[in-house]
Computed example of a mutant assay.
Amino acid sequence: MTAKREPISRRERPAKPALTRWGIVDAAVRVMRSEGLEKVTMRRLAQELDTGPASLYVYVANTAELHAAVLDALLGEVELSTDRPGTGWREDLVAVLTSYTRLLFEHPQLARSALVARPSGANYLDLVERLLLLLSRSGAPREQVAWGVDSLLQYATATAAEHATQEHEPMSQGDWDALTRAAHGVDEAGHPMIKAHLPTLLSGTQDARLSWGLNVVINGIIHTPVPDTTG
């Protein structure tokens, strides 16, 4: 005769860990890595954490804030300690921004989200602090350094979003191939400047263009005064 199973009391079940903002963001990062950023929703996280969606809003206001927090968590992987023998502030600045851009390359959906996300966590503040320090070593006025960091991050983020899309979406590669064919097939009479600048117009590796573009922005920051806003 089979022994009768003893019912398990609900009181004997282990208590669920208390919800925290850190725990919610950590779960969001796990879901993003395994399922993609589009799955990082309050409902999906509620399932992951065995709770109700309403409970999460106590810690995170909305999905946009959640995505910004995920971005901030990943920014902890950016290489900030770039001081190396024989390198100057410019090389170190480009190295930090390249590390940031490559991080976004690995997460194409997050790269696009980062164009509008406004992270404000510790990792983002550490990144901004490092960029300000390195850019200030150029000797540029404080106002240009302060405004310049925003331009550097915008350029790096937009570059990551563009290239991440091209590398992870087949249709984007098809669009690029079509543009390449169209550019090389233009009539010189109608588009003389395009014809004159080929093949350089479409040449260069991703890393080379990124480094060059960052230096263009840096040079602009150093040599472009901030307009007077006191009037």
Score class of each variant (00 low, 15 high):
91 E>K: 01
151 S>Q: 14
206 Q>N: 07
188 E>S: 15
124 Y>H: 04
26 D>H: 11
119 P>R: 02
87 T>Q: 08
133 L>G: 01
85 P>H: 01
60 V>Q: 11
213 G>S: 09
158 A>T: 13
210 L>M: 07
41 T>C: 08
143 E>D: 14
37 L>G: 02
102 R>A: 12
150 D>K: 14
89 W>D: 12
197 H>T: 15
151 S>V: 00
31 V>S: 08
63 T>E: 08
217 V>N: 07
121 G>Q: 09
117 A>L: 08
14 P>S: 06
31 V>C: 08
125 L>Q: 14
54 A>C: 00
193 M>N: 10
162 E>T: 11
2 T>P: 15
190 G>A: 03
81 S>F: 01
111 A>W: 01
192 P>T: 07
74 L>V: 07
53 P>H: 01
190 G>T: 08
115 L>F: 00
107 H>A: 03
83 D>S: 12
65 E>Q: 05
186 V>P: 00
112 R>H: 13
213 G>W: 07
125 L>M: 04
33 R>G: 06
100 Y>G: 09
50 D>R: 03
86 G>E: 07
156 A>L: 11
93 L>K: 09
76 G>L: 05
12 E>S: 15
185 G>W: 07
197 H>D: 14
148 G>H: 03
141 P>N: 09
52 G>P: 00
74 L>S: 05
196 A>C: 06
141 P>W: 02
205 T>C: 04
8 I>K: 04
227 P>I: 03
77 E>K: 14
201 L>D: 05
124 Y>V: 02
151 S>E: 15
67 H>Y: 03
220 G>C: 10
183 A>H: 01
229 T>N: 09
110 L>S: 08
9 S>D: 13
82 T>V: 15
186 V>F: 06
25 V>G: 12
217 V>F: 04
191 H>N: 13
1 M>G: 15
207 D>V: 06
141 P>Q: 08
20 T>G: 07
187 D>L: 13
147 W>L: 13
193 M>E: 12
72 D>T: 12
200 T>I: 14
107 H>L: 03
4 K>L: 03
24 I>E: 06
225 P>S: 04
